[in-house]
Design a protein around this nucleic acid. Structure first.
Ligand SMILES: [Mn+2]
Ligand SMILES: [Mn+2]
Ligand SMILES: [Mn+2]
Ligand SMILES: [Mn+2]
Lengths: 217, 217
DNA sequence: AATATAATTTAGACAAGGCTAAAAATATAA
DNA sequence: TTATATTTTTAGCCTTGTCTAAATTATATT
């Protein structure tokens, strides 16, 4: 079994690999894990010894098959717990991250599979992110970034590039939720802000915000 | 906030105080926490500095008000999670201890109260132990040890003195469960074994087993 | 190609929480 | 009331995971 710290690093490396599609650097990992580069280096050595990553000094790291499998289990646990917190304990989607961050480390051979069954095997977490199955298999949905839509095009808000509590609170305030149908009314060329329409209201969002919204056409 | 280790010590001291009704010695605490006496001494110093226990060298310890309150919160969390595991995830009462031992340490201002609400505020855990409320208040039920019953007397199995997985598995095997109605058929003077009858069957239990069964008359 | 800057690693330290072995205090027994 | 046994504490060490400061390597810029 892996320690809580090891699991957090594995998950962080996994997330960064998904996003950046290349070797993950010490500094990026340090900022993601809220630690210092020197601490990261220490941990990378340990993970390398355990064959969870391939690590050559100064070259960044990548997960091995074993490491990726381990990371996917943590991701699975994190997202199933998030689903539990939102759908059973009535938390908002902007309130569950820190708690899931702890729950994902509970050690048990059976717990997470029983939880999954209890939740009726949800396929996506409250932020639209796919929940890996027992074998680490992920259901991927094709989406495009809202920035890529042209005026007049429509789609459904499927997931977010940024699931930080701050961004989620922004979406709450603007009354935007997953599965909302969104239509592009106008694109302002000056600052690339986008005028959109949902079933219930219209609003203008900045380029930055739009870049965090992934749409299923 | 307290560390996981601190919480485990507080809970252990609390449990021993309930059982022994006196100052708790280093050695007893060491065996309860599966550590060495020297490690216990170290931790006791830390807890004393934090005013969670009163500690005078060689004299054993007892919880302060603050310490007891903290311990009761951990007990509350432990028992609510056990209830969740048994009643929502369908675990057996002999399978939940280790998992609850971890879940009880999840840090959140709101989680345990939401869990309690979701579970509809159960008052007892799967082993018949009372679940402290938000303020640490415990509902105590008057019970007598099965050893104190005379031939012919009846009662209901309410809770256990020993809730170890081993003893729970023994009870499973013998088809004895909480809330079973039990009647004393005969007491064997030679070894104090007790012949009992439930709604469904009869059996003979040893003095040792009987001593772990608390009965509500 | 040499130099300046940025990224990464190393060296050394620290806190938490554990251990063993030895010393000290307390309890028990002769 | 000594002597012995038991319990508890102290001293010193270890591992994990973190840090700062210094050294090293890689990258960017002249
Ligand atoms: Mn985590
Ligand atoms: Mn999520
Ligand atoms: Mn615990
Ligand atoms: Mn219990």
């Amino acid at each position: 079994m892996f320690s809580q710290a090891e699991e957090n690093y594995l998950k962080a490396i996994y997330a960064l690999e998904e996003k950046l599609q290349k070797n993950i650097s010490t500094n990026i990992l340090a900022s993601k894990t809220q630690t210092k580069a020197s601490s990261v280096t220490d941990m990378l050595k340990k993970l390398a010894i355990k064959q969870l990553i391939t690590y050559k000094k100064y070259q960044g790291v990548q997960l091995t098959k074993t490491g990726k499998d381990a990371a996917l289990i943590v991701v699975r646990k994190h997202r199933l717990w998030e689903y539990f917190l939102v759908n059973k304990l009535n938390y908002g989607w902007d309130e569950v991250h820190d708690i899931a961050e702890q729950l994902e480390h509970i050690k048990s051979e059976t717990l997470i599979d029983r939880l999954e069954k209890f939740l009726k095997s949800p396929k996506f977490d409250p932020h639209g992110d796919p929940i890996p199955d027992k074998d680490g298999k992920i259901m991927r949905i094709k989406t495009v970034n809202l920035l890529e839509l042209k005026v007049g095009q429509k789609g459904v808000l499927d997931n977010l590039k940024d699931s930080s509590d701050e961004f989620l609170k922004y979406l709450n305030k603007k009354n935007l939720a997953l599965r909302d149908r969104i239509k592009v009314i106008d694109i302002e060329p000056f600052d690339n802000s986008i005028h959109i329409e949902t079933k219930t209201h219209q609003l203008v969002i900045s380029k930055k915000v739009a870049g965090n919204l992934n749409i299923k056409i």
